[in-house]
């Protein structure tokens, strides 16, 4: 294969993976704090709209991405108020959040359909040569850096330790004096912000325009990725590349005339996630050395904050 083609495939794979990585990283931090937010799709689509509208309104990409992050974070905080302040059930609240986000973005977004936001500059604009540079962008690089940052935060910083402690056993963390609810609210704001940014990548870089429901299920894939990754940031990266890779390679194989059943191929990531989940859960139960590979123990449980 010519090197241009390979560079193109790799760049295409990264583009497909970036929104997934962003949303999944956010959800990973949320789940590490012991909260399960199933509303990723809703937060993503709000980010996609808010970012696009801000770009059209102001012309600035900086403002656009900031708006998307803030809008996503606001959605995350809304979920936080429901589940952390008012102790609502997380599963039901997350589903309601998705419904609300899809509706709200479509309602506001009706007027923005058909507008264009211009082409987001790629790395070749910085003078880098080649097909690879023309298919990659700074958000993508920032996303890769963010994977490292989140891994560092969770493993190496005190705040990260507190967050994990809260997610493992909220009662114990509370007894030590950690602010369980505040930590979780912060995690939810971060998770929402990342989902919003992922959505904006879709509407400002990947497609780039706004139409309602444009996230087309990517929020749910991000949720699957977190599990697939066994709550490890670097595995999120690997998983997103795999998910993105399967999509892109499937498209390319068709272009080359190879006959592969699209539906069977599309099932693979989900089946792989279940397989990984089994392996991780088994390890998590048997050996304490791999304890960090299993789900946070307080995941999805209500913290009543007594004592």
């Amino acid at each position: 294969m010519p090197s241009d083609l390979i560079a193109g495939i790799v760049a295409g794979l990264l583009v497909a993976a970036t929104p997934l990585i962003l949303a999944a990283l956010g959800e990973l931090v949320v789940e590490k704090s012991g909260v399960l937010n199933l509303g990723v799709e809703g937060m993503m689509v709000i980010g996609a709209y808010a970012g696009f509208a801000a770009k059209v309104g102001t012309g600035s990409y900086g403002l656009a991405f900031t708006t998307a992050i803030l809008a996503g974070a606001a959605m995350g905080l809304l979920f936080g108020v429901l589940t952390q302040q008012l102790l609502s059930n997380q599963v039901a609240s997350g589903l309601a959040l998705t419904l609300f986000g899809l509706g709200l973005s479509a309602l506001f977004g009706a007027k923005s359909t058909g507008l264009t936001a211009g082409a987001f500059p790629r790395l070749d604009a910085l003078g880098l040569p080649g097909r690879f540079a023309s298919g990659t962008d700074v958000i993508m690089l920032a996303t890769l850096a963010l994977v490292f940052a989140v891994a560092y935060f969770l493993e190496r910083t005190r705040a990260g330790l507190v967050l994990r402690a809260v997610g493992e056993n909220h009662d114990a963390a509370h007894a030590i004096g950690y602010p369980v609810v505040a930590v979780r609210m912060a995690a939810l704001a971060f998770g929402g912000g990342m989902a919003g940014l992922g959505g904006a990548y879709l509407s400002l870089v990947q497609t780039p325009f706004w139409v309602e429901r444009m996230t087309a299920g990517r929020g749910w894939i991000a949720l699957a990725l977190v599990v697939f990754a066994a709550w490890q940031p670097f595995r999120v990266l690997a998983g997103a590349l795999l998910f993105g890779g399967i999509t892109i390679l499937q498209l390319h194989s068709q272009g080359f005339g190879l006959k592969i059943d699209a539906q069977i191929l599309s099932m693979l990531p989900y089946l792989a996630t279940i397989a990984v989940l089994i392996v991780m859960s088994r390890q998590g139960r048997v050996g304490s050395s791999s304890r960090r590979l299993r789900a946070p123990q307080s995941l999805g449980k209500v913290f009543t904050g007594t004592a």
């Binding site: 241009d4 990947q206 325009f209 498209l251």
Partner: peptide, 26 residues
């Protein structure tokens, strides 16, 4: 002609990915 089936009428992200794959193949 190169033909890619995306199994959807509407998914801007996937349609864009498919267009990219086609362009990369020449």
């Amino acid at each position: 002609m190169k033909i890619i089936w995306v199994s959807t009428w509407f998914d801007p992200g996937k349609e864009s990915d498919a267009a990219k794959a086609l362009a990369d193949q020449g």
